[in-house]
């Protein structure tokens, strides 16, 4: 869906983004991860032209993004940022209605869409539609920020550290909600974060940036098993790389045929969680069952450990 070709941004003599090329497929959730100042935001903001590249280009569905005025391009692309950036003088409903209004939707359609989104984000329309952002909790503000970004049904959603201001528990909930929303609306998402755990948790593609260059871009497991640069393995963490790898596969994917005597674990559980469960119980095998309780196979500690190395 997005093709980035040799994109470079320079401010004076400093190169902030340095010749980045990547292809982001439709319906993927791509996470751009890197230390602070590595150029992630600048790269993201060149996609919706909040920053104009020094050289290189961005294609959206094959069309150069410079083919239309920047503000019209941006209305087709959702944008959510850290600290939500809600308009303090507009109500929750008005905030969510921002882009539909800019696009000239009629009032009835806007009203219906606002109600639909508030419900989708577990915000009761009767309570929240008329409230102002400062009356909401941090988690609620963040949800309104994402709802606003999705209001005009964009195919593409750009998110810049969207959960950066949330405390860990609300943050985990917001990450789950995002995966949910993505299933529900089928939106292609590009998310920027400096948090490697968040990258591994959310991304089906992860791009690692450092000093303006893209060190590696691929499925998360590949970053662990075939790091393209020593810096990538340093950033993904050497100490717990095996555990990270285990957390990327589910019990259902790794299950061996046949059943054994042992505790039942859900097919959707990660191998990391299954291993933890086995260690805790002091046994070395578990039955893998589907959500409806039917047996899917079994797992042994040895089989799990084999998944924890390249």
């Amino acid at each position: 869906m997005i093709t980035i070709e040799n994109l470079t941004k320079r401010y004076g003599t400093t190169t902030v983004v340095d010749g980045v090329s990547m292809h982001i497929p439709r319906n993927s959730l791509t996470v751009i991860v890197g230390t602070s100042g590595s150029g992630k935001s600048t790269l993201l903001r060149m996609v919706n032209r909040l920053v104009e590249p020094t050289s290189g280009r961005v294609l959206l569905d094959g069309n150069d993004t410079r083919a239309e005025p920047a503000h019209l391009l941006r209305r087709r692309i959702g944008y959510a940022i850290q600290g939500h950036g809600l308009f303090p003088h507009h109500t929750v409903a008005e905030n969510i209605a921002t882009v539909p209004r800019l696009m000239g939707w009629d009032a009835a359609r806007i009203g219906a869409r606002v109600t639909e989104l508030l419900k989708a984000f577990a915000l009761d329309p009767a309570t929240f539609a008329g409230q102002f952002p400062h009356q909401l909790s941090g988690g609620q503000q963040q949800r309104v920020g994402v709802a606003r970004a999705l209001a005009a049904e964009p195919q593409l959603l750009l998110m810049d550290e969207p959960f950066g201001a949330l405390d860990p528990i609300i943050r985990a909930k917001a990450q789950d909600d995002l995966l949910d929303i993505r299933r529900r609306f089928g939106t292609t998402i590009v998310l920027v974060t400096h948090d490697m755990d968040e990258a591994f948790r959310l991304g089906d593609h992860v791009a690692v940036m450092s000093g303006g260059r893209m060190l590696q871009y691929g499925p998360p497991a590949e970053l662990l098993t075939r790091p393209a640069d020593p810096l990538v393995s340093r950033m993904t963490g050497l100490a717990d790389r095996a555990m990270r790898l285990l957390s990327l596969s589910t019990a259902g994917e790794a299950a061996l045929p046949g059943t054994v005597d042992g505790p039942a674990v859900a097919a959707s559980a990660s191998l990391r969680d299954v291993l933890s469960e086995l260690v805790w119980r002091g046994v070395d095998a578990a039955c893998v069952t589907d959500a409806d309780g039917t047996a899917r196979g079994h797992l042994t500690v040895a089989a799990i450990l084999a998944h924890g190395r390249p």
């Binding site: 903001r45 919706n48 909040l50 503000h71 019209l72 391009l73 941006r74 209305r75 087709r76 944008y79 940022i81 850290q82 600290g83 939500h84 950036g85 809600l86 308009f87 303090p88 921002t98 882009v99 800019l102 920020g145 606003r148 970004a149 750009l158």
Partner: peptide, 11 residues
């Protein structure tokens, strides 16, 4: 952030 969001949304 408010101005950034406004521009990013296509104002």
């Amino acid at each position: 952030a408010t101005v950034d969001a406004a521009q990013g949304m296509g104002m």
